[in-house]
C-alpha cells in the first residue's frame, strides 16, 4: 500500500491535519478522510462542478486538486458557509427561489456562486450564466438557480 503523507491545512477556518495517499484527490480527502461529504462526486474529472470548493480564495474542482497540495492552504467548503443560527444569503436565496430539486449539485453551485459574488458583487444575468457554466444541474433547467444568484447579489448590495 502506498505510504501516506501528513498534511496540515485550514478548512473552514479551522486547522486540520490528515493523512492521505499522494494519489488521493482533495475531494476524496474531504469525503472519505474528513467526512465532509457536502462536496459531491459527479464525474471525478472536472466536468460537472459538484465538488466545487474555494482554495485560497479561488474556485476549484476538488476532484482536480490533490489532497497533498493543500498543505498550508485554506479551503472553504459548503459546510463552513452558514453561521450557527443563520444561513448564508446565497443559501437563503436558493431556498426562497426553489433553486434545487434533487440537490446533489446544490453545494457546488452555492460555492461557485459565492466565489462569483466575492469577486463580482453585481453580476449581470449573462455574467452569472458564464460563471456557473462549469456547474451542471440536470433537474432545474437552471432558471431558478440563476434567479437565486441574482437575488442573492441584490440582497447583498441592498
Amino acid at each position: 500500500m502506498a505510504r501516506k503523507s501528513h498534511v496540515q491545512t485550514t478548512i473552514n477556518g479551522e486547522t486540520v491535519e490528515f493523512l492521505c495517499e499522494s494519489r488521493q484527490s482533495l475531494l476524496e480527502v474531504l469525503r472519505d478522510e474528513l467526512y465532509l461529504t457536502g462536496a459531491k462526486e459527479g464525474c471525478n474529472n472536472g466536468n460537472c462542478g459538484a465538488c466545487s470548493v474555494i482554495l485560497d480564495g479561488r474556485l476549484v474542482n476538488s476532484c482536480l486538486v490533490l489532497g497533498v497540495e493543500t498543505e498550508g492552504k485554506s479551503v472553504e467548503t459548503i459546510e463552513g458557509l452558514a453561521e450557527p443560527d443563520k444561513l448564508h444569503p446565497i443559501q437563503d436565496a436558493f431556498l426562497e427561489n426553489a433553486a434545487l430539486q434533487c440537490g446533489i449539485c446544490t453545494p457546488g453551485f452555492i460555492m461557485s456562486a459565492k466565489a462569483l459574488l466575492d469577486s463580482n458583487p453585481n453580476p449581470t444575468e449573462h455574467e452569472i450564466r458564464y460563471w456557473l457554466a462549469g456547474n451542471l444541474c440536470r433537474c432545474t433547467g437552471y432558471d431558478k438557480i440563476v434567479k437565486a444568484v441574482m437575488d442573492a447579489a441584490k440582497e447583498a448590495s441592498a
Binding site: L95, G103, P107
Partner: peptide, 23 residues
C-alpha cells in the same frame, strides 16, 4: 402556496446524506 421545502436547509448546507455519503 410556496413554502420553503422541508429538506431545504439540509440540502443547501451539504448536510443531506446521499447514497455515496454513507459511512
Amino acid at each position: 402556496t410556496r413554502p420553503i421545502r422541508h429538506d431545504g436547509v439540509d440540502k443547501v448546507t451539504g448536510r443531506a446524506l446521499y447514497g455515496a455519503d454513507f459511512q
